[in-house]
Computed example of a mutant assay.
Amino acid sequence: MNTILYLIRHAESPYMAGKELERGLSPKGQQDAERVKLILHNEKCDHFYSSPYARAISTIRPLAEERKQTIQLIDDLRERTIGDISGTGFYEAKRAVYQDFTFSFPGGESSAAAQKRAVRVVEQLLNQHAGDSIVIGTHGDIMTLLLNDFDPFYGFDFWQSASMPDIYKAEFTILQLNRITREWSEQSY
């Protein structure tokens, strides 16, 4: 009995300093959230969970509304806080936290800590909803760290190549990952 996990990275969201929790989607992001719904229209989607960040919720909301499902928010699915990266470029800072999973910038969260909290949630969901399909509204780092726990291929280069939004379908038998496929492309309709 396979359990399907759809990890949906949020759509485009304009950066606003100090507004991580409440920043929503750009107009393009809103259009892409509708495309997410179209791409997964024929897929079984039994349960909806999300990071509490507005951009993650808004990306899966059209699909959840189409299914007449509520989205349950889980704080441990929130994006990783990178911390004070003064004097370090954004991409260099991201590379550093992926190269050393125990490293964190002041006020930030290491890859190991973020991965641990997110994996704990996913394992609970896989056990709770065995045989079902689960949609998770998430973020680039958390999606990458979740996949990395099952396959070390998923690291900095993968994070850097992921789009906004992005959809990855992970198929599990109990807690054993069987296959990961990408369901999103700019040509998907």
Rank of each mutant, 00 (worst) to 15 (best):
residue 1 M to S: 14
residue 2 N to D: 12
residue 4 I to A: 10
residue 4 I to K: 10
residue 6 Y to H: 01
residue 7 L to A: 02
residue 8 I to S: 05
residue 10 H to F: 08
residue 10 H to I: 04
residue 10 H to E: 07
residue 12 E to F: 06
residue 14 P to S: 09
residue 17 A to E: 14
residue 18 G to H: 04
residue 21 L to P: 01
residue 24 G to Q: 01
residue 24 G to F: 04
residue 26 S to R: 00
residue 27 P to I: 09
residue 28 K to V: 13
residue 32 D to E: 13
residue 34 E to F: 06
residue 35 R to D: 01
residue 36 V to E: 04
residue 38 L to I: 10
residue 40 L to T: 05
residue 42 N to T: 07
residue 42 N to W: 06
residue 44 K to D: 11
residue 45 C to F: 01
residue 46 D to M: 01
residue 48 F to Q: 02
residue 58 S to G: 09
residue 62 P to Y: 07
residue 65 E to N: 14
residue 66 E to L: 14
residue 67 R to N: 12
residue 69 Q to V: 03
residue 70 T to A: 15
residue 72 Q to F: 11
residue 77 L to T: 04
residue 80 R to S: 06
residue 80 R to G: 02
residue 81 T to I: 15
residue 81 T to F: 15
residue 83 G to D: 07
residue 83 G to C: 09
residue 86 S to T: 13
residue 87 G to A: 04
residue 88 T to Y: 12
residue 89 G to A: 08
residue 91 Y to A: 11
residue 96 A to V: 08
residue 97 V to N: 03
residue 102 T to Y: 10
residue 104 S to F: 10
residue 106 P to E: 04
residue 108 G to C: 05
residue 108 G to M: 07
residue 111 S to Q: 10
residue 112 A to W: 07
residue 112 A to K: 13
residue 113 A to V: 13
residue 115 Q to N: 08
residue 116 K to H: 11
residue 116 K to I: 06
residue 118 A to K: 03
residue 129 H to A: 01
residue 132 D to K: 12
residue 140 G to M: 00
residue 141 D to K: 02
residue 145 L to Y: 08
residue 147 L to K: 00
residue 148 N to Y: 08
residue 151 D to E: 11
residue 156 F to Y: 15
residue 158 F to S: 02
residue 164 M to R: 14
residue 165 P to H: 08
residue 166 D to G: 05
residue 167 I to Q: 08
residue 167 I to Y: 05
residue 168 Y to I: 09
residue 169 K to A: 10
residue 170 A to D: 03
residue 171 E to L: 10
residue 177 L to W: 00
residue 178 N to V: 06
residue 181 T to N: 13
residue 184 W to A: 01
residue 188 S to H: 07
